[in-house]
Nucleic acid binder design. Sequence first.
DNA 1: CCAACTTTCTCCACACTCAGGACAAAGATG
DNA 2: CATCTTTGTCCTGAGTGTGGAGAAAGTTGG
Lengths: 396, 396
Amino acid sequence: MRRMTARPANTHQARLLRLLRDGGPNSRAQLGDQVDLSRSKLAVEVDRLLETGLVVADGLAASRGGRRSHNIRLAPGLRFLGVDIGATSIDVAVTNAELEVLGHLNHPMDVREGPVAVFEQVLTMAAKLRASGLAEGFDGAGIGVPGPVRFPEGVPVAPPIMPGWDGFPVREALSQELGCPVMVDNDVNLMALGEQHAGVARSVGDFLCVKIGTGIGCGIVVGGEVYRGTTGSAGDIGHIQVEPDGRACACGNRGCLEAHFSGAALARDAEDAARTGRSAELAARLDGAGKLSAIDVAAAAAAGDPTALDLIREGGNRVGQVIAGLVSFFNPGLVVIGGGVTGLGHNLLASVRTQVYRQSLPLATGNLPIVLGELGPVAGVTGAARLISDHLFSPA
Amino acid sequence: MRRMTARPANTHQARLLRLLRDGGPNSRAQLGDQVDLSRSKLAVEVDRLLETGLVVADGLAASRGGRRSHNIRLAPGLRFLGVDIGATSIDVAVTNAELEVLGHLNHPMDVREGPVAVFEQVLTMAAKLRASGLAEGFDGAGIGVPGPVRFPEGVPVAPPIMPGWDGFPVREALSQELGCPVMVDNDVNLMALGEQHAGVARSVGDFLCVKIGTGIGCGIVVGGEVYRGTTGSAGDIGHIQVEPDGRACACGNRGCLEAHFSGAALARDAEDAARTGRSAELAARLDGAGKLSAIDVAAAAAAGDPTALDLIREGGNRVGQVIAGLVSFFNPGLVVIGGGVTGLGHNLLASVRTQVYRQSLPLATGNLPIVLGELGPVAGVTGAARLISDHLFSPA
DNA sequence: CCAACTTTCTCCACACTCAGGACAAAGATG
DNA sequence: CATCTTTGTCCTGAGTGTGGAGAAAGTTGG
């Protein structure tokens, strides 16, 4: 199949493509109602899009009391690849033009193995998805990496947890391998985009998306757009100091949020509690290598283990304290909490909420929902697909 | 004189008005180079603006090697009123259309005297400026109040330090009295706008403007636009907790930044040091009522008083700690520090910088200037004029 | 089965926008 | 004084977009 070559020629066309992406197939008449254009002008633009092959007319819709309308939809063969590289695993998914996930693979892998090894794995997974018949090729790909990115160039910069990636031309390299346009972003920003597109943050203009996985980061959305900061490191809240002379952090400082609570810190604390005999529940869950994960802590808490509950509560207080500050500063309309620790669920959420509602000003918290993300591992890959589709569905 | 009645009819006209405002008088040819429009189209739009009276052609400019150009400038009679209501004083200024301050008055007054009394004073000051011949009337006014504002309506909401103002229709009332359009915003946002227009933040897209006066607030500028948050309380950093069980704050919580450092807290600490005999320098500066101000502390520090220096240093550390967190989160291109405490100058700046550069990530601080505002009390009124002119210089 | 009404879509005439070139005006230069 | 440069105006032609007329295709009720 010939891949997507054309791009919208003007903002009207871009607008139409996004409407079709977000609202599904539609008739010319209904599109006309949404884009404040005359029927005639709209017909012209739709015809031009039909000529480019970006959209197709397939069949007639049911009548709504008059002549039946032609269904206009995005080309059904369009495929986007969404890649989410986490600290300890890789997610890859294929979507159609409406960004619905058609297939999704996950593979545990440490980013610290470096860009070359990770890329090989990503390409293998992409090939597997293609082989399964879900795609004959990709029209675009979005990829998230767990660290700051110089966005225009698509290159990671000074990533603390991913040595070896600094300056690696992710966009360039992946584009070469896949033969399609690629956009690169921070994994946290993509999670925010995903939740905005298909999750809890639909129709919210300004919100924060806190991702607690191996580390902690925060996606910032302002007026519906991801805010990336001057050097692309906005949202890097893992190294905010929460304890003047606290624990040593990998970044070289002491008392960073991430050192006190995160997937990694929680696992370490739980292992410690298990070995020192403070929790039989946790001890029973130690694996062969003497390791625990956030999931084990969640299970122990569900079984009523007070030590596990304490760990979660204390962690929630730490994050909540930081989020309370951010809420005062940013005054968001919504706070989403996601990442690996969502398994800790409402125990975590409860302590976060307590801190925020107690510490931040009533005006900022009065109507502020604090909720868990609803897309789980799909958020990142959906956000990645959204990133590239936003890029391709804008005037060239 | 007839006041400004017309508004730009389209974005081109709005663009031209702003160019003339920010770049001063200009020829048609030079304007054409700046707004990607053909000479003919530009001539048409300029002619239409001339017809409305918003701009005038006055005289010929010097030749640049060919035919001399006609100078196009904003109507010289346009006048904006900028009002900055602080916690303890009121600033009022008149500007021309280029936002140059033509006259500026200051009057000490406590906002807690309520909106009616404050308004009376503002109107008196405006009348005095008018009587001095600087303006025959006002084409628009901007006003800043020390608390959150529901921006579209121009109404203060739940202002902690200004009881009695909650819900008072500031925009409506002032517009009625002055007979011209009015826009209302938080005083901190206006300071940010002022520094962006004519101060240290020119040509910076994303920056923070921390105002330390009686309280502490922070103006947030994203992509050149002030970010106000979902309910208009964005930037309210005075009540971020900096000490788990710290001092009691007026807001009802404990350990708020504002309770530990701000103009008010610093004065209290200084008075305490003076009375308990810890600082002779400060004791010597006590006024009849046993009061001190930030200026006294600055003077004592300049005289080498170690207690005063300690107070400044400790305060700077507190604010620096919070700013460090905000820098990690927001990744600004510039941090401006202003407000009443700028008199503390480089002693304060030094401790803020130390905290930020030590605690925030290198990627965020690498190229980050932290500077004092350069406009002083003019920042707020300039920002106020800018606010209303931005409003009036946009398509109706 | 037919008349009346709806909804969808196409076609066409007209207005408006805007670019670019020709040209006039006004000055500099040698 | 001839030539060049810069500025500003006028005009034509291409393209953009609106709104109305009307054809196409359906529903509804008698």
